[in-house]
Write a protein that binds this DNA or RNA. Structure first.
Lengths: 352, 352
DNA sequence: CGACGCTGAGACAACGTTGACTGGGCGAGA
DNA sequence: TCTCGCCCAGTCAACGTTGTCTCAGCGTCG
């Protein structure tokens, strides 16, 4: 079965419009018209071109197309999240993808790991690929490096945190109000000594939640005590340690407000390890899978991540459709889910 | 403050090499050389060009560059997973991203939702953007539509499931062996009546796990009984219903092997709802967060998702680096994690 | 019956960049 | 002194596609 083809099994080069045109016996431009659905092409020629294209396995080159065509659109957007593997980012990515899909737009994803320099690098990498727009959960506090890109037509929406030193659209969760609700809920159960365990205060969302915590205490005329306040970062281990420390104080808290996912889970672990899960109340910020199945179930302030992602994507595409209205920040509400841990009453005498 | 600029605040067009060249007083080609780090450029000119570029906010256009340059590389790969929001896919995406990052390669992500037609569409969309390579968790059983692309140089690696009707690299978990281990573990605890609850049998991984289940029973000389076998799909609700049904049989199983994540969680819920979590043993396939914190902890066969993703990405990049060796399938081992639920002994008399 | 408009297809240049080649200036060796 | 070759920057065309323009063919109307 010796054939003429002596090629080493591998790489032909990919067929182009030129070859399709040659095979169909038409001009390149006509092939272009066919693939762009221009109606003024003889149906007979259309089928001839399509057949030639199928035979050759031709696929249009979108990068060449976007280079030449007027709007320069690549039908691709960039998405920068904290970590593609964590549930918040993953859900966000998926909802943005869902909105993009309806428009034939694909999503480039990058993880920042809370590193501002990585944010810049990846944003640049996306811009170098001429994405039509960006959805960013910013790691740094200064996005002014994007001013140029904004002026040259790259649309962008910030998520979870607003942009710093840049006038841009944003979609955020109701962080301060959510935290307030959480702490008020614990106050209602009679708690007067409520610990705050959260992410580093340098992270804007954490700062806002902390602010809500302080405000709730203030309104309730409870003195702020930084002995029972820990900004631990977002690792479970650190949260476990902090929880143990706080509960080992001479005057330990009777309730915990844990303001971030991994911190919440760390605290859950620590409470169970100490056998205090039915004694010390807890409300966490951000829901997590199986929170309902533990005993007690973990009460949380749930963010509507899907809503956040969907809104952000829709805002971005509106901008791409030509919306030139002033930038705005949309706040998505949170809601309290009572599951048991947040409803544990305060023990001991009431001090008022 | 009336200025000459009457422009409506918005969209300048993005500067090109031409403009940088004009401002720096050099030829376009020299700008190109500077940005490609060609060493034979006068250092004085290099700084002149860089300054001009900075002043204009110039950023190279990678799509134009990849169109012109010889290898046609876009420094972008495509990744098709089942659902970017689920933990398995999310971790996979992240590990692939990590390997890609080291090479300055970005990742386009798409979710297939187990829909073969969507797999084709998205694969085509990625190819139209001329990605350098593809990492695919296939939804369908026939990937022959990719043969052309394979021959024209698009590299691809399949993950979690092998490609159908296509000779391609793959990285899979040890499904059959893992299931075997799970069932053997339950047998060792004295169980003779072990239910199988898993995803639809049309999904290759589910079929392999089911195969492992049957094989383990066979070796142990236990008759197969399809009364206690349910292929329920991957929804928690369906798994809950199936678990309840199976346990309501006249001769209910004393142990469950749940062969997929959501099925495992559904069964956990059902067992708790029925108060049987300390009576009926369970081993699940695939680990999940908080499995250790439940009581009893849920014993699982854990897949090494990071290892799977890393291996796949590395294989892809080896191919891109010119590796032309025969295609191969790498199997990544699983491991049993004992946490309590799988070690609950069988009640009642032993039948042998 | 000739000018006119319309329909459908091709020619040409250009998008922003880089590969291949060219050419001027200058030092070294014959 | 002249040539050779090297160094560095420039010119030109091309990557695959599409916007603009042109043009052939044909039916219509005054």
């Amino acid at each position: 079965m010796t054939q003429g083809e002596a090629a080493p099994r591998s790489t032909r080069s990919r067929p182009t419009m030129r070859e399709v045109a040659a095979l169909a016996g038409v001009a390149i431009k006509t092939v272009s018209r066919v693939f762009n659905g221009v109606p003024t092409v003889d149906p007979a020629i259309v089928t001839r071109v399509r057949e030639a294209a199928d035979k050759l396995g031709y696929r249009p080159n979108l990068t060449a197309s976007s280079l030449r065509r007027g709007d320069g659109r690549t039908a691709t957007i960039g998405m920068l999240v904290e970590d593609a593997a964590n549930p918040f980012s993953a859900v966000l990515t998926r909802t943005v993808e869902n909105v993009a899909r309806k428009r034939g737009v694909l999503v480039l994803v990058g993880s920042l790991d809370e590193d501002p320099s990585r944010e810049r690098e990846l944003a640049q990498a996306l811009i170098d690929r001429r994405v039509d727009g960006l959805v960013i959960v910013p790691a740094g506090r200064d996005q002014s490096y994007l001013i140029n890109e904004q002026h040259t037509g790259t649309r962008m929406v910030f998520v979870d945190r607003e942009a710093g030193l840049l006038d841009a659209d944003a979609v955020v969760s109701e962080n301060r109000q959510g935290a307030l609700t959480a702490v008020n809920h614990l106050l209602k159960a009679g708690h007067r000594r409520i610990a705050y365990l959260g992410d580093r205060a340098s992270i804007p969302t954490a700062a806002q939640r902390f602010d809500g915590y302080r405000h709730a205490l203030e309104v309730a005329h409870i003195a702020y005590d930084d002995e029972i306040v820990r900004h631990v970062g977002s690792s479970e281990e650190a949260a476990i340690a902090a929880t143990e420390q706080v509960l080992s104080l001479p005057d330990p808290p009777t309730a915990l407000f844990t303001s971030q996912n991994f911190v919440t889970i760390g605290a859950v672990r620590a409470l169970r390890a100490m056998g205090l899960q039915d004694t010390v109340a807890q409300v966490g910020f951000d829901d997590f899978p199986l929170a309902d199945i533990l005993s007690p179930g973990i009460s949380v302030i749930a963010q509507d991540v899907e809503q956040v992602g969907r809104t952000a994507a829709e805002m971005l595409f509106h901008r791409l459709d030509g919306d030139e209205s002033p930038t705005r920040t949309v706040t998505v509400p949170t809601r309290l889910i009572e599951r048991g841990s947040g409803e544990i009453p305060a023990e001991g005498p009431c001090h008022d």
